[in-house]
Design a protein around this nucleic acid. Structure first.
Length: 747
DNA sequence: AGCACGCCGACT
DNA sequence: GTCGGCGTGCTC
């Protein structure tokens, strides 16, 4: 059959394929075919779900026919498709998979293998609309005698109430399924299945609040954002406010202004499961519909929230990373709270960064984008100082307290002492004064490594720059990335000192030490191990809030989000684990961590105190954090980045080969490196390949990972190289080539 | 990603 | 002589 020009559609398929496909729409499906709907299409020997991207023309080939249109209403708009297309090309990821990731999980029809005729294949999965039976009087009741007894009471009730859910009837009449069935059989009562939403907040009530008075900084920030909203143009902001400076109130009041203009707001938070307070504040302030999207919801709940948004029933969406794809229309503002958080980056599959996409979507929607944080990313800060983002500062804590006093303790030459005298004395004094203490130790995932307590030297892999992990059994230090290993040295290879020690004390060990040293104190610990299970966080936090804990020992997680209103001393046992991560952002991360912890200290009239123990007391990430002079750190760090050639002065991307089965990955990576060199020549661009290092192979638990970094002075050159590579290089089966378009986590 | 086609070892 | 291993290639 010949194709007529208007019955051809372009379809994206959620498979790792870089192309889209064309199909012919049979005449009977034409009326239902629309951009944004899913279709079932023949694909090779099977049938799969695809997404309609639009109509195509000028195709002479014989095309296969669409089997079915799977949706009554489109799942995405033309505008949302524009965002998907942008993300697909920027992140070099197949459009179909991007769309799949953007839509709520679990709605996709899973295509099954087709038999010879192409039919008979069972479709599984699909919609999960939940319904409940709703009873009502029949529109045209037959002329029969009404039943007596309970059934007649029920009928009367239904006639009065028009329609009633089964649950309500059960509440009034008890179990009445028999009577209802009888009434239906008589044709006096009708039942329909009505869609209901699974509401994660069904049982919660909130007490409304009203806008709070703003301090000078907050007012100015609000006014500038409100002005931007009124112009109706794209306007990106960095809202830089120390912890406790009242950023949320600025969000709330600017969003209130926005809602009056019939526009909507999208609020991204790093881990919504950990920030119920924020959601609560929004629910207390606004009476409009609010949807919440995060990983703690079941597929069904998330789908229901998604449908509420799609239907325009909400004006505010609060959610984690993936909420950047929420089907919200007329967006006037996108907030990215704690924009420095690494969890905005999806690091598997479709590797997008929601913080970056927020700016892109904001631009497409002519919206304001507000990046809020006390500790901006260095690149964000740079964008603000060069005028790409408008800088809004909230310099004051809402409670009026100055920033806490910071003391950096040089731990070099104190082998074996986990908690040094100044910190012990600090804790003693704080206990005596009735204050609570937070003892922080960032000891996640990294096993022990070797450091010199005289000179601060750390044993690293010469190939991979990661710290070497000590293996006691072999008495060797081993690189977990390339298997490089050396015998355990007895003296520091740098300065010859015998004061070499293993770092890697964990919170458990610290807890033990603290309990020994402060036997009268009530000690608690908060880390992944002690908060496991539901309500684990809440239990520990409640004890702290009720002042049933004197000393709280914690990891990373205490630095984020929670309020500890009684803490007057923060002791940082060591920052080395963060500082020694082989990542060009390790200084930035350390600075952020310390600053976030500083925000935990202080209450009442007491600004609080922070004591940092370290082998690197002169490191600028510590000294500048200690002064509280934020600009100083950023200026120093930016100078360093410029000198060494790191973002924001160059663009980085990583190429990764990952997989489970490979005959020879070394060989494979050599092939890839060859392609890279050829492409670089052809592009005659200034792309620098930082690797592969002599031992590029990574083997972890049977899986391998090979990674190399690419560096270029301008993004287009880098992007062209990556795009060309993805189309020219076909990895063998079992291996996938992934591209991390923005800076990677390691090396 | 599937699923086929295609060319080499141990079995009814 | 076949059944089956997964290497390579394609899917509008």
């Amino acid at each position: 059959m010949k194709n007529s020009p208007s019955d051809i559609i372009e379809v994206a398929i959620p498979l790792p394929l870089d192309t889209t496909f064309l199909y012919r729409v049979p005449v009977e499906l034409m009326p239902r075919t629309e951009l944004g709907k899913r279709v079932l299409v023949p694909f090779g020997r099977r049938r799969v779900t695809g997404y309609v991207l639009g109509f195509a023309t000028g195709e002479e080939r014989e095309l296969r026919e669409v089997c079915d249109v799977l949706d009554d209403t489109p799942l995405f708009t033309r505008k949302e498709l524009e965002l998907y297309r942008w993300a697909s090309s920027y992140y070099l990821h197949p459009l179909g998979e991007v769309i799949k990731a953007a839509l709520p999980a679990g709605i996709n029809v899973q295509s099954r293998r087709a038999d010879a005729n192409g039919d008979g294949d069972a479709l599984t999965g699909g919609k999960q609309v939940k319904t409940e039976p709703v009873y009502g009087p029949a529109a045209a009741p037959p002329a029969v005698d009404a039943p007596r007894g309970k059934a007649s009471l029920i009928l009367d009730h239904l006639r009065q109430a028009e329609e009633t859910t089964a649950a309500e009837l059960r509440g009034i009449f008890g179990d009445c399924s028999l009577q209802l069935r009888r009434l239906r059989e008589l044709g006096l009562v009708e039942v329909e299945a009505r869609e209901i939403y699974r509401d994660p907040f069904r049982d919660e009530t909130v007490t409304p609040d009203s806008p709070l008075a703003l301090n000078a900084g907050q007012s100015e920030a609000r006014d500038r954002i409100v002005d931007a909203i009124d112009t109706g143009r794209f306007a990106p902001f960095l809202l830089h406010g120390v912890t406790g400076s009242g950023k949320t109130e600025v969000y709330l009041q600017t969003i209130a202004h926005l809602l009056n203009k019939e526009r909507t707001a999208l609020v991204l938070v790093p881990e919504i499961a950990l920030t119920p307070q924020l959601v609560n504040r929004f629910r207390r302030r606004f009476r409009c519909g609010i949807a919440v999207l995060h990983s703690g919801l079941s597929d069904g709940e998330r789908y229901d929230e998604w449908r509420r948004i799609r239907r325009g029933e909400v004006s505010i969406v609060i959610g984690a990373r993936s909420a950047i794809f929420a089907p919200l229309e007329r967006i006037g503002m996108i907030v990215v709270d704690e924009e420095h958080e690494a969890s905005y980056k999806q690091s598997e599959g479709f590797r997008y960064n929601a913080r970056d996409l927020a700016l892109v979507r904001g631009k497409m929607e002519h919206a304001c984008v507000v990046l809020g944080t006390a500790t901006p990313q260095v690149t964000t800060w740079h964008a603000a100082t060069t005028g790409k983002l408008a800088l809004l500062s909230l310099p004051d804590r809402v409670n009026g307290l100055p920033m806490p006093h910071v003391e950096v303790i040089d731990a070099r030459g104190h082998k074996g002492e986990a908690i040094l005298p100044p910190l012990v004395e600090g804790i003693d004094a704080n206990l005596a004064g009735g204050g609570q203490t937070l003892v922080f130790l960032n000891r996640r995932g990294f096993a022990t490594w070797l450091t010199c307590e005289e000179c601060g030297h750390v044993l690293r892999c010469p190939n991979c720059a990661v710290t070497l992990t000590y293996h006691q059994r072999r008495n060797r230090h081993v690189c977990h990335y390339c298997d490089y290993a050396i015998p355990a040295p007895s003296v520091c290879p740098e300065c010859g000192s015998t004061q070499v020690t293993h770092l890697g004390l964990g919170t458990e060990r610290i807890e033990e030490l603290v309990r020994e040293r402060f036997p009268e104190a009530r000690v608690d610990r908060m880390d992944r191990d002690t908060t496991r299970g539901k309500g684990g966080h809440a239990r520990i936090l409640r004890k702290v809030a009720e002042r049933k804990t004197d000393i709280l020992i914690g990891t990373q997680m205490v630095a984020k989000g929670h309020d500890f209103p009684g803490i007057t001393l923060v002791g940082i046992v060591s920052v080395e684990s963060t500082l020694n991560i082989p990542d060009y952002r390790s200084a930035e991360r350390t600075y952020q961590l310390i600053t976030q912890l500083m925000g935990r200290a202080g209450r009442g009239l007491d600004a609080g105190k922070v004591i940092i123990q370290t082998f690197n007391p002169d490191h600028y990430a510590l000294t500048h954090a200690g002064t509280g002079l934020l600009e100083k750190f950023y200026t120093t760090e930016l100078a360093f980045r410029q000198e060494t050639g790191y973002p924001p002065f160059v663009h980085l991307a990583a190429l990764c080969l990952t997989g489970t089965a490979a005959p020879s990955v070394e060989q494979e990576s050599a092939v890839l490196a060859g392609h890279l060199r050829t492409l670089r020549r052809e592009l005659s661009s200034r792309v620098e390949i930082l690797g592969p290092s002599p031992a590029p192979l990574t083997k972890l638990r049977g899986r391998f990972r090979w990674q190399t970094l690419l560096k270029a002075p301008e993004r287009p050159a880098l992007h062209r190289l990556l795009a060309a590579l993805r189309s020219s290089y076909a990895p063998p089966s079992g291996i996938r080539l992934q591209v991390d378009v923005d800076p990677v986590d390691l090396m």
